[in-house]
């Protein structure tokens, strides 16, 4: 019997297998902690910081921190919620996120967090960067305007020899996620679907399939993100 750790989230008694990451442990106890760059089956990135919680006064990301016995975790506190909302707003203003013309709208996790935190308008000025749309691969479009640099595609989309289709380029605010020309041109349909599935926003799109789901039937049209997490 693996050792179970007892811990508290916002005062609620919880139990989970020690060493499991807080996000999964919380989910098992019916508590939703928002994530954007976390992806099941892939090593957590700690890139988006949206899952920030506080443990003994220190801010930590719940996706990368394993559960320890007796841990006291604060998650739903006003200042932590404001940090998460602030990060969502930062991501909106530092890209080109025009939801009305984006086919991922309604299924987009960034937009869903915007709805969850009732982001009527970001507090930061819009940056309107002009970024590249790469359509060189036969099956996908990589639209850097909508990319939030979460590394999900970099970490999860590999060819049979383990080589990455996607990678970072440059650093700081010139950072981009780029598609490898050689691998991109030889990408097959399944990899294209997998790549689009890995992207939480509308940055990787399978070609010629746009706007397949009518408004009202998309994932977050009726229910906010995280509403599926219950005991």
């Amino acid at each position: 019997m693996s050792n179970l750790a007892k811990f508290k989230i916002d005062g609620v008694e919880c139990m989970a297998e020690a060493g499991k990451f807080i996000v999964e442990a919380a989910r098992e106890n019916g508590i939703f902690i928002p994530t954007l760059c976390n992806m099941p089956g892939v090593k957590p990135q700690g890139a988006c910081r949206v899952c920030t919680v506080r443990i003994n006064g220190r801010l930590m990301t719940a996706c990368t921190t394993p559960i320890g016995d007796g841990m006291e975790i604060e998650s739903n506190k006003p200042d932590l919620i404001d940090i998460r909302k602030s990060i969502v707003e930062l991501l909106f203003v530092s890209g080109n996120h025009f939801c009305p013309a984006c086919e991922k709208s309604g299924d987009c996790e960034l937009q869903a967090l915007g709805y969850l935190y009732q982001m009527m308008v970001p507090r930061y000025p819009y940056d309107f960067p002009l970024r590249e749309v790469d359509a060189s691969s036969p099956y996908i479009i990589k639209d850097q305007n909508r990319c939030i640099m979460c590394k999900r595609c970099i970490k999860s989309v590999k060819d049979e020899e383990g080589r990455s289709y996607f990678a970072f380029h440059n650093r700081g605010d010139k950072l981009e996620v780029v598609l490898d020309k050689v691998l991109g041109e030889s990408m097959d349909k399944q990899t294209a679907e997998k790549a689009m599935e890995s992207c939480p926003v509308g940055s990787i799109l399978v070609k010629e399939k746009g706007f397949a789901k009518p408004i009202g039937t998309r994932k977050f049209d009726r229910k906010p993100i995280g509403s599926d997490v219950k005991l």
Binding site: Q45, L91, S94, I148, M149, G172, D173, L175
Partner: peptide, 21 residues
């Protein structure tokens, strides 16, 4: 800091530019 940020987390990658503006 804008020049030297590694850019791999959303906060430092963007906030340094926003505050400098």
């Amino acid at each position: 800091f804008i020049e030297e940020s590694c850019g791999s987390c959303s906060t430092c990658r963007n906030m340094t530019q926003v505050m400098t503006n």
